[in-house]
Amino acid sequence: MTTDPTIVVGVKQVPDDDEVGIDPDTGHLDRASAPAVMNRPDRNALEAALALRDETGGEVLAMTMGPPTATDVLETAVALGCDDAALISDRKFAGSDTWPTSLTLAAAAEALDADVVVCGEETTDSSTGQVPPGIAAHLGWAQLTYVEALEPELEDDTLVAIRDVEGGHEVVAADLPVVVAVAYGENEPRAAGLHRKLYAENEFEPLELSADDLGLDENEVGMDASPTEVGGMETVEPVEREREVADDVDDLLASLRETEVLA
């Protein structure tokens, strides 16, 4: 029987999709100058974690692996209601692909004594969705991905989820401890309360965890432990479109006739 569970939420700082501008010289997206924000799907993860705590008690801790500037997303998490937050930061983590990233987050989840790890569906910058199953695999825990709703049965050390599967839904019960990945857009993230917001901005200091703190060797993390590498990047020319705006339905039909899609 689990009481007062520790719920750890993984949040990541990413370039703001909506603010990515076009580089006037190259005509391509300029992500470097976009402001950094919390990965949108992680807001759903946070909401799911906070809602779970509302039901079960215990505490919610946010964790992020990234540079010290990523403290910003931890502040956001604390403002939204997380009890505390950890910055997992070390030069040794640089160049991590999903294998060492999930190992590092798995070690942090253990260090924080997590019963449940909640993640987003995927990040908008690397968009792999591999980190949550990766954390579960490193820890040998159960996992629940594409989760729409959670139902705790702590008396049986079980977390039940409604999962989105191809063409439908399923209800799955998983043993604790467990890693959850919440389907993007499945809940309405709450707004930050004023008190919490002031605390997050003025007083809050994150717990800091390095590779040494987590007992991770240099060759287990970062570039050295990453099986994949980027071999090259090609810019894809945007698909050429006519971009004609019709005056009315007649005009639209006339244009469509010319394309021969409509005889």
Binding site: S102, S127, P133, Q143, T145, D164
Partner: peptide, 23 residues
């Protein structure tokens, strides 16, 4: 890259220390 494929691929790649490229 279905929900099923993306769900378990990591549970193979992690213990095998394989490279796994998404989507």
């Amino acid at each position: 890259g279905t929900h099923t494929g993306r769900d378990f691929a990591g549970r193979v790649a992690v213990p095998a220390h394989a490279g796994l490229t998404a989507d």
